[in-house]
Design a protein around this nucleic acid. Structure first.
Length: 440
DNA sequence: TCTGGGGTCCTAGGACCC
DNA sequence: TCTGGGGTCCTAGGACCC
């Protein structure tokens, strides 16, 4: 029987690395990528981290570093990052028999039985660097939790010389180390670096005198379950080398779909909120069509800004059940707007709204047709065709080409709810109008 | 002035049932 | 005085992930 072996491959400072592909001047400089609305930093180059910029740092608090330290800030360009991600994932997939794309910048691979996994992983990351120009790191180990940990070591060994042995930089394979060597690494690694240990549990562990990965590994799993949870117990077992989390290379359809946004500026009026909610609900329906599901309940929420506690606060959500499970954009938008009407209160500065589709189920559970008459069935089919046409046009010509009337027709500058993105780079790889131009 | 967005899993407790 | 017990389902909230 072959021993289990997993790899975790991920992009270094991924969004920043994507931006650097098309603007080499960004190399060696502190760079951050900002969230929607240019609100806070969601990716940082090593140089930006060295300036002390934390993940999630609000832009207005760090923007003085633009002048003082040459910090470059860019608005998130998700169209670009998604496309670069696809390219990396297809190259990475060749390393293992099976691949689980875990997030936009990382994937797990099943390497069980692969001879010379370390050398193969080095070759793969070299190819990704040459072909796509994005640096990556690979962690290899018998469980996914350990592969994550190995990946952390590979990154730190490269980024912070002296933290770990230099030979573990970029690719770290724990399976080829001795137990003593592994323990030495675990003893140098804070428990908070473990996949599954967040700020809350990390603090509790520290208070209990468990500071390092080695401390955690040496706890009795049964005690961990009793004192913390089955989740942490599973983590401990994984750290001890027993696989408890399998590779998920065929992710199930999502159980819920959300589209939520903070507004570019405060919004007070119902009409404007209706525009936003129509847009969010349409996008959510589009995602729903993408996984061929139906929803049976639509949640809509609006809220003021929690960061302005002195201003009047209001936050409410409501769930509007659909008569029958559906993927009809018109029906979903209608439900969201009906909910909005019921929760809206005048006199507040709204900062955020969102639409979530709940109770998703496969569209093929066509049970509802049995309960409908012939006319209704025909109507359903016409609606489905209309939805497909709507999606197709928007996929082909760009989101927002065809919208519902309630989404509003006023131009962008007049819409306070649309997000600010003042520093977005061109969508070099996905938009003909924004190709990189080279002049002699 | 200015603070993201989208998910999953687990647990505790209440409602309900027999 | 004294007020069963066990099972299931649902929901809200907490914790985690990137």
């Amino acid at each position: 029987m072959t021993l289990p072996l997993y790899a975790l491959l991920d992009g270094n400072n991924f969004y920043v690395s994507c931006e650097r592909i098309f603007d080499p001047r960004l190399h060696g400089r502190p760079v951050v990528v900002l969230s929607n609305n240019d609100g806070c930093a969601i990716a940082r180059s090593d140089e930006a981290k060295a300036l002390g910029i934390k993940m999630g740092a609000p832009w207005f608090q760090i923007r003085h570093l633009e002048r003082e330290a040459g910090l470059v800030a860019l608005s998130a360009n998700f169209a670009l990052y998604g496309d670069i991600s696809d390219r990396i994932m297809s190259l990475a997939a060749r390393l293992g028999d099976r691949q689980e794309v875990y997030s936009i910048d990382e994937c797990f691979l099943d390497l069980a039985g692969l001879p010379d996994a370390t050398a193969q992983a080095r070759a793969t990351r070299e190819q990704i660097l040459r072909w796509i120009d994005v640096p990556t790191c690979v962690g290899i180990a018998p469980t996914k939790t350990l592969a994550k940990l190995a990946n952390h070591i590979a990154k730190s060994a490269e980024r912070k010389p002296g933290s770990y042995p230099a030979r573990l930089a970029q690719v770290c394979n724990l399976a080829e180390l001795s137990e003593r060597q592994r323990d030495w690494l675990y003893q140098r690694t804070p428990v908070g670096e473990v996949w599954g240990v967040g700020p809350r549990i990390g603090r509790q562990l520290n208070e209990a005198g468990i500071a390092t990965v080695l401390d955690l590994i040496r706890l009795d799993p049964a005690t961990v379950k009793a004192r913390w949870s089955v989740v942490l117990e599973r983590t401990v077992r994984e750290l001890r080398g027993t696989p408890c989390i399998g590779l998920d290379d065929a992710p199930a359809p999502k159980q819920q779909i959300a589209v939520t946004r903070s507004f570019g500026q405060r919004v007070t009026g119902l009409a404007e909120l209706k525009e936003a909610v129509t847009d969010f609900a349409s996008r959510a329906a589009h995602k729903l069509h993408g996984q061929d599901s139906h929803t049976s309940a639509v949640l809509v929420f609006i809220r003021t800004s929690p960061f302005k506690p002195q201003a009047p606060q209001y936050s409410r959500s409501i769930i509007v059940p659909l008569r029958l499970p559906s993927s009809d954009t018109l029906q979903i938008v209608g439900a969201a707007l009906a909910g909005l009407d019921r929760i809206y209160r005048a006199g507040f500065d709204y900062a955020k709204a969102g639409v979530m589709l709940l109770d998703l189920q496969p569209a093929t559970q066509g049970q509802q047709e049995l309960e409908l008459g012939d006319d209704a069935v025909l109507h359903e089919r016409r609606q489905a065709r209309l939805m497909r046409a709507l999606d197709a046009v928007n996929d082909r010509f760009g989101r927002g080409t065809l919208t519902l009337g309630s989404a509003g027709l006023c131009q962008e500058p007049g819409r306070r709810w649309t997000m600010r993105q003042e520093r977005r780079t061109p969508r070099y790889t996905t938009c003909w109008d924004e190709l990189l131009t080279v002049s002699a």
